[in-house]
Each structure stands twice: as C-alpha cells, then as structure tokens.
C-alpha cells in the first residue's frame, strides 16, 4: 500500500509539473489540478495511515489516540481542497479573460517568435 501510494503521488506530481511547463494556459490549469491531487495526497500521507479507523471518537471516556487515523493532516487537506478549487476558478477566469484580450492562449499572451 505504501509503495502504491508513494508511486501515485509521484505520478500525479510528475504529470502536474510537466504540464506546468507547457505553453498553453489550459495545460497549466489541468497541471495545477493534478499537482493539487498529488500534493494533497502527500500532505495526507504525512500522518498515520490506517484502513478503517476514521477519526470519529466515541462519546466520552478514555480514548487511545494511536488507534485512529491522524486528524490533523486531514484537516489541513480539507482546507487545501477548497482553496485549490478557489485558485482553479480564479485561474480559469483569468485565462478566459486573457484569451479574450490577447487573442491567444499562450501563457505569455503572445505566440512564441520563431
């Protein structure tokens, strides 16, 4: 499981980074989405990973924290998911507006000079 998860993080990040360096703005936005998945999983994997031990407590009494998944990375990632949605929305709109004003979807606002 650990190996698969690590490889998954690597593949997502790699695909995202590759797209980040591409010239078309749509590639960039897809790249950011993929990178966000990768990074979210990465942050998530920094805590204890259990199968079937969600951080939902019983009411009252003594609890053994090590029996549950780590809630802190989860809380961080939850925030990250929402924020990455917001940045995607903002970037999309900037991209659309740039496309309208510059007439091209190259990230520099003009086609590369050959």
């Amino acid at each position: 499981m650990e190996l698969v998860l690590a490889l998954a993080i690597g593949v997502l990040t790699g695909s995202g980074v590759w797209l980040l360096m591409r010239p078309r703005s749509y590639q960039l936005i897809i790249g950011l989405c993929l990178l966000a998945y990768g990074v979210n999983l990465f942050i998530f994997s920094m805590g204890r990973l259990y199968v079937g031990a969600a951080p939902i407590m019983p009411k009252g009494g003594f609890v053994d924290p090590t029996a549950y998944a780590d809630p802190l990375p989860q809380a961080l990632v939850l925030t990250a998911i929402v924020i990455s949605f917001a940045t995607t929305a903002l970037f999309l709109v900037v991209m659309i507006a740039a496309r309208g004003t510059s007439g091209t979807d190259h990230v520099d606002g003009k086609e590369r000079e050959q």
């Binding site: 593949v11 790699g14 990768g38 994997s45 802190l72």
Partner: peptide, 30 residues
C-alpha cells in the same frame, strides 16, 4: 524535470510512510 520531480516525491513519501510514526500533534486533538 517532471520525471525527476515525481520520482523525488515518491521517494520522500515512501520514506515517510515507512517510518513508524511517533507521537503526532493530532493525538492532542483526538
């Protein structure tokens, strides 16, 4: 660059995942 980046992330993630976790700040919250 992309492949190196992905490979590096895999390595770091794996290293963390295979280290037995000690006490986490999360325990306090739990």
């Amino acid at each position: 660059i992309a492949v190196t980046c992905g490979g590096g992330m895999t390595a770091i993630a794996l290293a963390v995942l295979l280290t037995r976790p000690g006490n986490s700040v999360g325990d306090w919250f739990l």
